[in-house]
């Protein structure tokens, strides 16, 4: 297993290199000049040129690339072109809120969608199944920001139970931390719960049609054992796949939620950096997101083997 992990990790090196080259090139080939942004509306062409020179953006693109990649290999992601602060510090500063939202949303999704999906499959065609199916369609049809505004209207503006916006780290207390994340997680989770529930339902339905389920029932096992131990265990691989996809989708999906709820996470950082053409931050974040994506896929692959030993490593 260790050898497999090492091999997979080694295979990520060329992937990351391609990502680095592509993102570096795309940023420099698309319109937008960070020097003009820093200089402001009243700057002249000459003033913008001076700032560009100071930023090192007047150098040929290959020279800029090799300097950047050399620094990254030494763990230095450079400084933000706009705020002049170390990129690494800025990313670490914004990582907490995004990890919190992602983690809580995944937990919330798994806790709700797996039992609901199982029940829906077990009661296939019955009223409960129809309600779950309709709810799922509604869940992933309504955009996150609509759900967010509705929840804010009900729980913040009308009832006054929860704050409209903002983020508090755990260090400021568990309740302030949770209180500020309930609505964001509920809004973001709706779409993923809908997605995973449908996936769990269809996987379980497929599994329930297998011969070994019939055998299990024939030998007198109760429905709970059949569903949990036989059906769910065998449906685990596709469910894991969708959970893995959910986590990677969350990295992109969190942008809207962070904006609506004013949460200073990585999603907002990447949007702000793109709008401000802050090349060094965008490059670092894309590489980071690629690494996260690769690691999540690796973990899911390992879990496949754990849940289904027949899978060839």
């Amino acid at each position: 297993m260790l050898l497999i992990i090492l091999k997979r990790l080694a295979a990520t090196v060329p992937v990351l290199l391609v990502v680095a080259v592509v993102i570096f090139s795309v940023l420099r080939l698309t319109p937008g000049d960070p020097a003009a942004i820093v200089a402001g509306d009243g700057a002249t062409v000459q003033q913008i040129e001076e700032i560009r020179r100071h930023m090192g953006l007047d150098q040929p693109i290959p020279v800029q690339f090799f300097k950047w990649i050399g620094d990254v290999l030494q763990g230095d992601f450079g400084t933000s072109l706009i705020s002049n602060l170390p990129v690494k510090d800025m990313i670490l500063d914004r990582m907490g809120p995004t990890i919190a939202i992602t983690l809580y949303t995944v937990l919330y999704t798994v806790i709700i969608s797996i039992p609901v999906g199982i029940i829906s499959a077990w009661r296939r065609g019955k009223a409960v199944d129809k309600v779950v199916t309709a709810g799922s369609v509604l869940g992933f049809s309504v955009p996150v920001f609509i759900t967010a505004y509705v929840l804010i209207f009900i729980f913040s503006m009308a009832l006054g139970w929860l704050p409209v916006q903002g983020y508090r780290p755990l260090s400021e207390g568990l309740w302030p931390h949770i209180k500020h994340l309930i609505l964001p997680v509920a809004s973001l989770g709706t779409i993923y719960i809908a997605l995973v529930t449908r996936f769990v339902r269809s996987s379980i339905i497929d599994t329930l049609g297998e011969d070994y389920i019939r055998t299990a029932r024939a030998k007198g096992l109760n429905e709970r054992s059949v569903l949990i131990h036989h059906a769910l265990g065998n449906a685990a691989v596709p469910i894991l796949t969708i959970i893995g996809i959910t986590i990677t989708m969350l990295i992109g999906g969190v942008v809207v939620t962070e904006s609506v709820f004013n949460i200073p996470g990585l999603g907002r950082l990447v949007v702000e950096a793109i709008l401000a053409k802050d090349f060094t931050i965008i490059q670092a974040l894309i590489v980071l997101f690629s690494v996260v994506d690769i690691v999540i896929n690796l973990i899911i692959d390992i879990l496949y083997k754990v849940f289904d030993p027949r899978i060839d490593s």
Partner: peptide
């Protein structure tokens, strides 16, 4: 980043 959130936050004393 969201104007409506700002208005809601002002009304909500945040």
């Amino acid at each position: 980043p969201d104007a409506m959130t700002g208005i809601n936050a002002l009304k909500n004393k945040e």
